[in-house]
Structures are given as structure tokens and as C-alpha cells.
Simulated assay, not measured.
Amino acid sequence: MIGLSFVLSASIIPVIIVLCKKFRIYDSQDERKIHKGNIPRLGGIGILIAFVVSCLLYFYLSPDTEIEHVMPLIISGSIIFIFALIDDFLNLRALFKLFFQVVAVLIVLFNGYRFEKLCDWVMPLWFSYIFTFFWMIGIINAYNLIDGLDGLCGGLSFLVIGSLGIIFYNSAQPTAGICFIMAAAIFGFLIYNKPKAKIFMGDGGSQLMGFMISALPLYYSTFNFEYNKILVMIVLVSIPMLDTIAAMWRRTREHRSFMSADSRHIHHKLIALGFSKVQTLIFLLSIQIFLCLAAGLGMFLKEDKGAILLVVIFVFMIAFYSSIHFIYYTVTKNNPVDIKTIQDDSSELKIKLKK
């Protein structure tokens, strides 16, 4: 079913590109995005269709699996996607979008999926539900915010979900199957989303990525993964998570809405420091590969040693983000970058500084 998921995604996306061009359904531009020209924006449809069809067939044809195992993901993921897709067309109010995110998350929680412990500490039931709720809402929106560069959100999601599939493989194969099917659907999309992108996943796709990444680790696995599960996930999602925390702090300090767009996300800062679009993508994906390897190593170490390693890696990521932030503001303090002046000649991004 992994191959089917990839083939479906890779086959559906070109059709979506043609339809988007025919009906002029292009991605809108704001301060968060740096592309030029008319780019189709409904790539998330291909990912969702490939995932749902392949998952249903996988569970229907596997005698040792129960389809109830995947239904909360399919139902909630579809809710997330559909209303984010509607927002792509109608520009819904933020509270309206948040309401349907909450509905989708509550479906997962009411089906018993939640974080239960942090290392040796077993969470009280009420705290477990509250923590899991805010975890899911936060990660859904974090991956939506990081989706501002060709291949970035899809690439990060592919690596994280693929890593979860490997982690689950020896202990919970049905869950591993879900991960690999989703990763294959994303990979089929990435063929058309790599620089220079022919299509974007849209808010529906990026929020679907965040939802899947927030929900998949809630399935039960081995004791070693359960012991360090929260730390593993914090490390795996540290790029979009820290970027979102920085954005929230920045907008609070500037008395702006959390939902307002700007051009100071991590990829914008790297571009302002002289990286091309492709170099920025490779750099951030390389860091994500390092994080995936570190999380995998943490799984194989003894529980407490694994926890120490994961905490050290997360501290490293905080230091990395702080360094990029400091260098960016040092370089641009007297020579601010206007993201709208970025020129794309298909080989590199040339940054023109305001004089």
C-alpha cells in the first residue's frame, strides 16, 4: 500500500495542477511567502486522497488489523483539511478555523488517544487531556506557519512521519503502516513541490501535516518510546515549534495579532543572511535529518540516558535559533531586508537591501 499511496499522489497532483490553472486557483501572496507568479495551491488534495484510499485498503486487506485503528485519523484529518481548504477560498475568521481544529482534536481525544507519561511521571488524567489538546492545536498551526518555502513543510513532514514509522515498526506495525503510507503520499507531492515548485499544498495540506504529526505519536508503542515519547516528539518538531514560539513572542511584543503574517520566519532570516532558496531548504532539511537520527539514537539508549540526550539536543536547537536570530538582527539592524524585493532567477535568490 506504500507504493499505491505514492503512485496515487504522484498521479493525482498533475491533474490538480491542470485544473487549478484552468480555473485560476492560485496561491495568494502575503508577507510569509516568497514565491513569484501564479502557483496552483491545492496539492493537499492529492496527499489526502492517496492517504485515505491506501489506508482504507491496507486495513481492509490486513486480517490482523482493525479499521477502527485509523478512523479517528481519517475523520479528524478530513475535518482539518476541508475547513482549511474552505479558508483558502473564503478567508475565514481565525476563530472559525480554530473551532474546527478543536472539533477534530476532540474526536481524537475522545477515542482515547493521548500522552500518558513524561519519563517516569504518569500524568493525571485531566492534565493528560489538556496537555495533549494544546500539543495538537499548537503543532497543527506550527506546520501551517512554516509552509513558506518550496519543499519545506512537505520535506520536514516526510522526514518526521517516516521516522515515526521506523520507531513504530517493531512494536505497532499497523501504526507504522499508517506512517509509511502518509510519508509515501507526501513524497509523491514533493516531486512537484521541490524548487521551483509547480504546486503548493495550501493551508489544507500544511494543517493536515501538522495534524498527522501531532496525532500519530499518541498511538501506544514500546515502553522505551512511551518513556521518552514527549521528548522525542519535541526534538522531532523543534524547527516549526521554535519558529512558532518566536513568531508568537514577536507579534506579542509588537502588539500584532497572532494570525498576522510577517517575513521573519527562520527561512526568511536565512535568505536574508545570503542563503539561496535551495540552500535554505537543504540546510533546514539537513538539520531535520540530524534531529531524526538523534531521536532514533535516544530510542535505543537506556531510558534515562535517552532522555538526557534528547534534552541536550533540544537545548542545542534553542541555541541554534537564538544564534540565527542574533545574527539576523545584527546584520539587518541598519540595513533592513525588504522581502518583497527578492528576485528569483531559478538558480538563486538575490536579496536587495533597502538603501
Results as ranks from 00 to 15, higher is better:
I2W: 03
I12C: 05
I13C: 01
V18F: 11
L19V: 10
S28R: 14
D30Y: 02
R32A: 02
K33H: 09
N38F: 06
I45G: 01
L56C: 04
L56D: 01
L57S: 01
Y60E: 13
S62K: 08
T65Y: 15
H69C: 06
V70C: 08
I75M: 07
S76C: 03
G77F: 01
S78Y: 09
F81P: 04
D88T: 03
N91L: 05
N91C: 08
L98K: 01
F100M: 03
A104L: 01
L109W: 00
Y113G: 01
E116Y: 12
K117Y: 12
D120C: 10
V122P: 02
Y143G: 08
I146N: 01
S157L: 08
S157V: 08
G162H: 10
S163F: 12
L164P: 13
C179R: 03
I181V: 08
M182F: 13
L190E: 04
K194T: 09
K196D: 08
A197N: 06
S214F: 02
L216H: 05
Y220L: 12
N228G: 13
S238D: 06
S238K: 10
R251P: 02
F258D: 04
S263Y: 04
H267C: 09
A272W: 08
I287D: 11
F300L: 12
F300I: 15
K305I: 12
K305G: 12
V311I: 15
V312Q: 12
V315Q: 03
S322W: 10
I327Y: 03
T330L: 11
V337D: 09
I339L: 09
S347T: 14
E348Q: 14
K352C: 14
K354V: 14
